[in-house]
């Protein structure tokens, strides 16, 4: 074999080994992060975490108010963001598929999808916190809703675009009005995909911290009052992790474990839903 062949094969071998190394490198990070989270977080995991309030430094406590706050904020954000997102996605896929407006909105929506979430926080601060005069759970929920919205718009539009046209034509041929066709035929056909979108949005929102820092702020106490500052798990983690107190840092790790497990579980479920749909 001449030297040119050998050099080419060597180069190929080097490149392919590098790509294997890169993959192991990428997977290594995931394993490393999860391992550290488990190592640091499992020790602090006890019933107490779910039944007691966040403690003052130096005493024992749990994360109950933060977990409940996060749940309330997430549910509200999804309740506000999902309907608007689904309706907007519906218009883009069903009524205005070939309109100029649709491509403009799609472009803008894609940008909102990856816009820095801290800017959303600033926006909500300007339009809600300043006029109301205080931080509030509502402002936090709206900020999160603004992050849910583009995710839902995008998946709804994509999924409705995948619904085959003969379904619509058959329904219209039976004399159904357009809105009826959309609600009872298209939504039903695209249900799994749309649900995936909502799940992904929930996963994204439940770990978001930046937009909550100056909208919902934080609160040491039990708070179901949406007009007052509201605790949330990510913000509590942020505050506790950066504190000098060891027991606070311990709780931060436990909270981090809870969030990560939740988010990753949601992501995996969403992926399976999407995959099972593709196979149908």
């Amino acid at each position: 074999m001449n030297s040119v062949y050998r050099a080419r094969r060597r180069r190929n071998w080097i490149a392919m080994s590098l790509s294997l190394v890169a993959t192991l490198f990428g997977l290594g990070w995931l394993v490393l992060i999860l391992a550290v989270l488990l190592w640091e977080g499992v020790g602090g995991l006890s019933l107490q975490v779910f039944t007691e309030m966040t403690p003052p430094p130096g005493s024992a406590g749990g994360l109950l108010n933060a977990i409940v706050g996060s749940l309330i904020l997430t549910v509200l954000a999804v309740a506000i963001g999902t309907p608007v997102g689904i309706l907007a996605g519906t218009h883009m896929a069903e009524y205005g598929r070939y309109e100029k407006l649709t491509s403009v909105v799609r472009f803008i929506n894609d940008i909102l999808l990856s816009a820095p979430s801290i800017v959303v926080g600033l926006f909500v601060y300007e339009v809600m916190v300043v006029p109301m005069g205080h931080f509030s759970g509502w402002a936090g929920a709206v900020a999160l809703a603004l992050i849910v919205l583009p995710v839902v718009v995008r998946t709804t539009e994509d999924m409705l675009n995948l619904v085959p046209n003969p379904l619509r034509e058959a329904a219209v041929a039976l004399g159904m009005p357009r809105a009826y066709v959309i609600r009872h035929v298209c939504y039903r056909a695209a249900r799994a995909g749309m649900l995936t979108g909502v799940l992904l949005a929930v996963a994204r929102v439940s770990g978001e911290t930046a937009p909550l820092l100056f909208t919902a702020l934080n609160n040491q106490f039990w708070g179901a009052n949406l007009n007052a500052p509201m605790p949330s798990l990510p913000v509590v983690i942020f505050q506790f992790a950066l504190s000098p107190y060891e027991d606070w840092q311990k709780l931060a790790w436990t909270g981090a474990l809870i969030i990560t497990v939740t988010v990753l579980a949601l992501t995996v479920v969403a992926r399976f839903l999407a995959a099972s749909r593709k196979e149908q």
Partner: peptide, 21 residues
Amino acid sequence: IAIELLAGVPSIIYGIWGLFV
């Protein structure tokens, strides 16, 4: 999927992990 999970890990987790580990 594993690589995409890396994108799913909330950024605050990267923060706390980066600071302490």
